[in-house]
Design a protein around this nucleic acid. Structure first.
Length: 639
RNA sequence: GCGGCUGUAGCUCAGUUGGAUAGAGCGGGGGCUUCCUAAGCCCUAGGUCGGGGGUUCGAAUCCUCCCAGCCGCACCA
């Protein structure tokens, strides 16, 4: 809501400047650092000082003199070097937040967005690096939906790749298991494969002749027939079930699982190839080191300046298609430009749609989005750029523009975490260590969640000794989920997270539990007020009539932050910087906890003070609940 | 070599389009519980914003040159 007020004020000011000096000037307000300076600050006089060759303060004075402003601005002052500061009608703004809510969908009909995330290779347990991807993707999807975008969430399953092939080789050739034996491996199957994968990698490296087994397996996986393909299918199904269960612990779900084998079987690439060839995006190389390949030239585009090899191979000399080639075809499908569709089947046990090769039953429409956001870590920026360039070269410049790579930095293990896991970091005491599925180095997602739940349980029982059983389990799970999701979202996307056990398991300070705790406090206040027979809330109408001096700066600060929520959520969604949501949530909780100690409600006898504190508490709750909802943090009833 | 990211308190990090006294958490020191849950609050110490130069009324933020670290630049994904 504040945004509309800001725009209106900016308009007033620019008209004022125009009438005074005939200059067009636009100035957006900032929030002054301290509340006694005002609620909104326009630096317009500072910007004009040069042009008008006058002191900023004098300009500001002149603008302020006789300035007509909307009636919810109570006072205008010139402050500091020449800021034009405004004081707002606190009761009115608070009332408006209670009346209209704190977060509205955007205006107009919005086009469909596909958010693709998680994309874990189905050959081992998920680790905490995968969690960063899934949490960011999920928070983005939730945020877009809340803003009114239709969103389809996809999870891409590479069920024909080398990683899967290696595990199949491990099961069959290293362990000597048949189909039935693989089915019989006890849970947790993903943990079993985690160990097997690193073991088979060593086994393969040990004797180069064994590479032939991998090649054979890969071939069968791609063809989709043979015992190796059958065992591969079992592995994919079992691992996928583990991954979906892990993600469900975090409240993460998908609309569609897209399987690579369907892309191959349905010959998606053939269509894409025809487009790539006829548009001249790729050509057949007759000589040189890429002889026999179909390549996409990248030279000439500034984006790819300075590459050693300016040509990207799309079809190999043996006729097989590279990852990038398949991904271009898939991206075209997502944008509705391929002219082919998958078949679909509903996976009953997992309650999710997945792509299949044969004609399936009635299904919802998938794909064909106006915008596609691929959540993939920053190491793959180069490949994502090529995919985008491919779409563009075919002639879909606008669609390429709406193919967005949501890049984020990876999760590594802090030096301390590496040491606790017994992983070497090359003798450098302070160095963090990259995780590696191939080497079996990493913290498994379920292990971390278990630890977080155990810690939560311990904290809860130390305060609520009577709690046990299902209720305790649920609270512990909620708190663990919140802790983890907050941990993954509070970091800015450009920063590598060096995962540390102590930090992750710390429930104090800048943590998910800290946020939840402040909301639980609000619930408790309401319970106690009800028990004492007092009003449990202040209505919007009553808030509007509260005397201005009841709003102390600390209460008002909280309201003002909530008033900025809409703008911040919109910025977070459009810039893909979701840490802004987490930071704002933290700012609210910190503000509230301070207010909580200074301004008791239950034990305050003055009705006016009780009303204004209660109104502030309600507004805080609206704000923080909106944010925790976007962050996917469940709110426990007690802690 | 080319491209991307990073460098801010002992540690982990925020810092909106250049603005008012550079902030938070952890850790350190000190305090707060007959009163809505101490997963909390308050006080305190701690800074050459990697370095030099420049633009500006004003620079952590923009430009430029250095220095350091991480990532990427396959007929792997």
């Amino acid at each position: 809501m504040l945004k509309r007020l800001k725009d209106e004020l900016a308009q007033c000011l620019s008209e004022r400047v125009k009438s005074l000096w005939g200059i067009s000037a636009a100035s957006l307000p900032e929030i002054p650092p301290r509340r006694e300076l005002g609620d909104l600050a326009f630096p317009i006089a500072l910007q004009l000082a040069r042009e008008l060759k006058r002191s900023p303060r004098a300009i500001a004075e002149e603008v302020a003199e006789g300035l007509e402003l909307p009636d919810w601005v109570l006072e205008v002052r010139v402050e500091g070097p020449g800021f034009l500061n405004l004081f707002l009608d606190r009761s009115r703004i608070a009332a408006s937040l209670l009346e209209n809510g704190v977060l509205q969908p955007l205006d107009g009909e919005l086009a469909k967005t596909i958010v693709e995330h998680t994309n874990i290779n189905p050959n081992k347990a998920a680790h905490i690096g995968h969690l960063r991807n899934a949490v960011l993707g999920d928070v983005l999807a939730k945020t877009l939906r809340r803003l009114g975008h239709p969103v389809e969430i996809q999870n891409y399953i590479d069920d024909t790749g080398v990683q899967l092939a290696d595990v199949v080789v491990g099961l069959m050739d290293l362990r000597g298991l048949d189909l039935e034996a693989v089915e019989g491996i006890p849970e947790p199957f993903d943990y079993h494969c985690w160990d097997l994968y690193s073991e088979v990698r060593r086994w393969l490296d040990h004797d180069p002749d064994r590479q032939e087994l991998r090649r054979l397996t890969l071939h069968e996986l791609e063809a989709g027939s043979g015992l190796r393909a059958d065992i591969g299918q079992v592995v994919v199904r079992r691992i996928l079930r583990c991954h979906l269960a892990t993600m469900r612990r975090l409240g993460i779900r998908y609309d569609l699982l897209t399987h690579e084998n369907a892309i191959l079987k349905l010959a998606f690439f053939d269509n894409a190839f025809a487009n790539l060839e006829s548009s001249g995006a790729i050509h057949f190389e007759k000589e040189g080191k890429n002889a026999g390949c179909w390549v996409m030239p990248l030279a000439g585009s500034a984006e790819f300046a300075g590459l050693e090899d300016p040509d990207k191979i799309i079809v190999r000399s043996d006729g097989t298609v590279t990852y990038v080639g398949k991904d271009i075809a898939y991206q075209l499908w997502k944008l509705g430009l391929l002219g082919l569709d998958f078949h679909y089947r509903y996976w009953e046990e997992e309650k999710v749609w997945q792509t299949v090769v044969e004609n399936g039953p009635e299904h919802p429409t998938f794909g064909s989005a106006a915008r596609v956001v691929n959540v993939i870590d920053a190491r793959q920026s180069y490949l994502q750029k090529i995919v985008r360039a491919g779409v563009e070269k075919i002639g879909y410049a606008a669609e390429a523009e709406r193919s967005i790579h949501f890049a984020y930095e990876m999760v590594t293990l802090s030096a301390a975490a590496a040491e606790q896991l017994g992983v070497s970091n090359d003798g450098d005491e302070a160095k963090s260590v990259e995780m590696s599925g191939r080497k079996g180095i990493g913290v498994k997602a379920d292990d971390l969640l278990d630890q977080l739940e155990s810690k939560s349980r311990q904290e809860i029982t130390s305060r609520n000794r009577e709690l046990q059983g299902q209720e305790l389990d649920q609270l512990a799970s909620q708190i663990a989920t919140a802790a983890l999701r907050f941990l993954m979202t509070k970091a800015t996307t450009t920063r590598i997270i060096a995962f540390d056990f102590d930090e992750a398991l710390n429930f104090e300070g800048e943590s998910g539990p800290y946020l939840l705790y402040s909301l639980v406090r609000v619930k408790n206040i309401r319970k106690k007020l009800a028990a004492a027979g007092r009003e449990t809330e202040t209505s919007a109408a009553a808030t509007q009539t509260l005397a201005a001096d009841l709003w102390s700066d600390d209460l008002w600060d909280l309201v003002l932050t909530v008033a900025q929520l809409q703008e911040r959520v919109e910025v977070a969604a459009s810039t893909l910087e979701l840490s802004l949501l987490a930071r704002t949530a933290l700012e609210l909780a910190q503000g509230f906890n301070a207010v909580y100690h200074r301004h008791p409600i239950l034990h305050e006898d003055d009705a006016g003070l009780r009303a204004v504190r209660l109104a502030t508490t309600q507004i805080f709750e609206l704000g923080l609940e909106a944010l925790t909802d976007l962050l996917g943090m469940p709110i426990p009833d007690r802690m």
